[in-house]
């Protein structure tokens, strides 16, 4: 079976900095799993509706009421890096 995916491009999409040996191994695993999944193509499903969810749920609404939430400090307490009440990340805007 010819390879359908470019592992490097896929890794870019999912934000994984795969090492070269990981790329080779994961590529082989994915090929094998996709070859197994291929059996679904033998089924005729033109007239079949897809099931993305088993319960017949319509949109679930609730009243839009403001409620107090005191979680900010407990959320930030264990953040990898914080600055006052913010999560701190590396600079994303270049200086001009």
């Amino acid at each position: 079976m010819s390879q359908k995916f470019d592992i490097q491009q896929l890794a870019e999409l999912v934000r994984l900095n795969l090492k070269p040996d990981e790329r080779a191994k994961l590529s082989r695993d994915l090929e094998k799993i996709l070859a197994y999944v291929e059996q679904l193509q033998t089924l005729e499903t033109d007239q079949v509706q897809p099931t993305s969810h088993v319960l017949q749920i319509e949109n679930v609404f609730r009243k839009d009421i403001v409620k107090p939430s005191k979680v900010r400090e407990s959320v930030l307490k264990y953040a990898p890096k914080r600055s006052n009440q913010f999560f701190k990340v590396p600079k994303v805007i270049e200086e001009t």
Binding site: L10, R15, N17, K25
Partner: peptide, 23 residues
Amino acid sequence: MYFETRNQGFGAEAKRRILLGTF
């Protein structure tokens, strides 16, 4: 930071499923 955090943080099976699912 994103790329390296995810690569270090996820094990092999998680990576397999993330890649496969995205594919």
